[in-house]
Nucleic acid binder design. Structure first.
Lengths: 230, 230
DNA sequence: CGACCATTTGATATGGATCAAGCGATGTGG
DNA sequence: CCACATCGCTTGATCCATATCAAATGGTCG
């Protein structure tokens, strides 16, 4: 298996300098609320880096609009995407001091950027914030568990599982608008673009899905997909 | 891919009834300390279930001695092990109310069992405990990330990575004593026993490792292993 | 010693990777 | 507005790593 992509790197911004704006007196019960008040929105163009592997984890991010890929590139150039972040998702939260993965905007994206130290400091005093930090990490954990279960399955099962995940997360009924390329999907599922593509056509031929355009997928037969997802 | 094991189930104990012994006034700064004071040790025989998928997550566990596998069985009987827990490891910590995975003792094991609600309640009042709950989850997250990176690699790379992980965790120099069977390793790495076995003999032939007995592995050439682990 | 189980080894099959075109959409310059 | 280059995606042909099937070996326990 020597698959996966060479990296198509956009311009990297080492430090997208911001200085945080701590609001020490906040005692909100909505984590999102807290974050929104402490952070500043930033725009990232398609394919630009938000942060890199091994950089100090100074900030924490919340997607306002657009999609982000969290990934790591192995020495031989293979890329593994370990998560896609959609609007509402929080990412970049590390307990260590360095990012273990890199993050890039898949589409033009608006991202709320918050100084980590400010949030952690707040969590120190506000149990509610602390619990919600924990909840965010925990949710990530669950997603990774699902991801692991995907990675040991057949190509059909992986693709089916991926489509169901996306459908669930975007919850726009049966039509899924994919913000990422086939290559992104392949690197997420540990397959090649060719296999992803072929599998989609197989599913289409089996009348399980429709693919009106390459980025738009309609789930025609969810129970078949769920069966594959077993 | 229709690999993996049929489940060799030991006797399941639905509820290993314990009633917790909350010690509300503890303000230790060692999480282990807190847990130890709140929990009671229990013994589990080899291959017995500690808890099952979908059971309510009432307890939280810390391995005192022995090894535990955390796993899930798919509808068609494939088993995926998502973690091995060694002495010192904490498992069973869910934020939801149900266990997402099952847990079994791989060897006879002594496990400290703590009522979750007691710990969570304590975390409510003690920020230090709260942070450490978070740290536990976070460490798990990191391990899963490593696991994902393993699962997209070649058989050699997976086995090499696994051996390095085990060596690091047991830190007994270059000799690794494996508490788990080849089948367990296979189900952890998403391979078959045959492939795991063959890969080990390949590595042995390449003088990268020695396998004096099937459960004992000596790392002879770590740099070669690290190269595979890239 | 003999039965059983875990592991290794061998022979063959196959799913997905790789290599190589082809195709359709999008955008750019003439 | 069209010709053409580019890019992302699909499709086809072949290859290979790992699964599958089958058997032999070895270690453990009664």
């Amino acid at each position: 298996m020597l698959t996966q992509t060479a990296i198509q790197n956009g311009s990297s911004l080492q430090s997208h300098g911001r200085s945080g704006r701590p609001s020490p007196s906040i005692r909100s019960h909505s984590f999102s609320g807290v974050i929104e008040l402490m952070g500043a929105p930033m725009s990232f163009a398609r394919n630009t880096e938000i942060y890199g592997d091994n950089e100090p984890a100074e900030y924490l991010y919340k997607v306002i609009s657009g999609t982000v890929r969290i990934y790591k590139v192995l020495t031989d150039g293979r890329r593994q995407i370990c998560a896609f972040c959609l609007p509402g998702d929080i990412f970049g939260l590390e307990v260590g001091d360095e990012h273990a993965f890199s993050a890039e905007a898949i589409t033009d994206a608006k991202i709320l950027v918050v100084k980590r130290s400010a949030v952690v400091a707040l969590a120190e005093r506000d149990n509610d914030v602390a619990r919600q930090l924990w909840a965010v990490t925990s949710r990530e954990l669950h997603q990774l568990q699902d991801h692991i279960m995907l990675l040991v399955k057949t190509a059909q099962e992986r693709v089916a599982g991926f489509l169901l995940q996306m459908a669930e997360r975007t919850c726009t009924g049966n039509a899924v608008e994919l913000p990422m390329s086939r290559q992104d999907i392949a690197d997420y599922l540990g397959l090649t673009i060719e296999t992803v593509s072929r599998t989609l056509t197989q599913l289409e031929n089996a009348a399980t899905i429709e693919v009106p355009t390459s980025r738009r997928i309609v789930l025609r037969n969810r129970s078949a997909l769920n069966r594959l997802n077993a």
